[in-house]
Amino acid sequence: MAQNELLPRGATADQSDAFTGSVAAAGRKRTPRARRPALTIAAMIVLGIMLIAAAVGHWIAPYDPALQNVGLGPTGPSAAHWLGTDDLGRDVLSRLLEGAHTALIAPVLIAVGTTVLGTTLGLLAGYRQGWLDTMLMRLTDLMFALPGLLVLIVVVGVAGGGYAISVITLIILGAPSDIRMVRSVTMSQRELAYVDAARTLGIPARRIMFRHVLPNLAPTVVANLLLSFVFALVALAGLSFLGIGLPAGTPDWGLMIQENRGILDINPWAAIAPALLITITACAATLLGDSIYERLDAGKGFSE
């Protein structure tokens, strides 16, 4: 069945049964099917542009992002400064391009870390079950009960900021939902014939988990990677918006929003452009992650 449901993460399991789904599909023109790839492609293009900006932004910036021109002060967009200047006369476009690097690299790092940790633990818990599973589930219950971003603000703030502590905290905060997702998919894979066959052949459990089951989790893992990226991007931008974690003056998107919100009436772009960039990047990654989940859901309906 081909269901194009955009659902909250992990909420796809309780969806409709195949029968009514296919009746609905036959009875109506499936315009969403044709529309979805266009959006997905747009999301990929946006992410691609952002990654390129992160890679080469430093070299294509028209000005030195730290170059001050206090005499000029904050100005609106002009031919010399496409997105205007900030309070200290620094070029906003250059700071955005320079900031793309810090804005994207750390979230990528966190997303990879979260996914590796979450996938490994989820796979172990789902395949082996037993005490490890019970313990991990209690732990994730505990972490779900705490407001993650508050924990982040407090831990990073009290520990006195720093890149490493933000990254580690975010990896730990992001892992529980990955563990849950991977665990539940592993548990359904575990019941399939190929796992039984591998077990009968005497293949060691670790090999079955990482060589046989893991490849079948690929869509889940990729989707988790994207959603962890979004979480980290927004969380880090939020931290620097609050003035926690980074020294003042760093060309960082979150910090730019904070520093330039006082000149909204003179050069709104100085604060709104970074806010929109964060949002657009987050949207694109969410969209892509969602479309992978959807395909996953459709595929699951088919194989069952």
């Binding site: 927004v234 931008a237 929003i257 709104p268 709104i272 806010a275 929109l276 949002t279 969410t286």
Partner: peptide, 20 residues
């Protein structure tokens, strides 16, 4: 689609756009 956009729209960014 709109709900998806607001799902990834951080509150501080919304605040800023509303303020402006």
């Amino acid at each position: 689609l709109v709900s998806l956009v607001f799902l990834s729209f951080p509150p501080f960014a919304i605040a800023l756009v509303l303020l402006y």
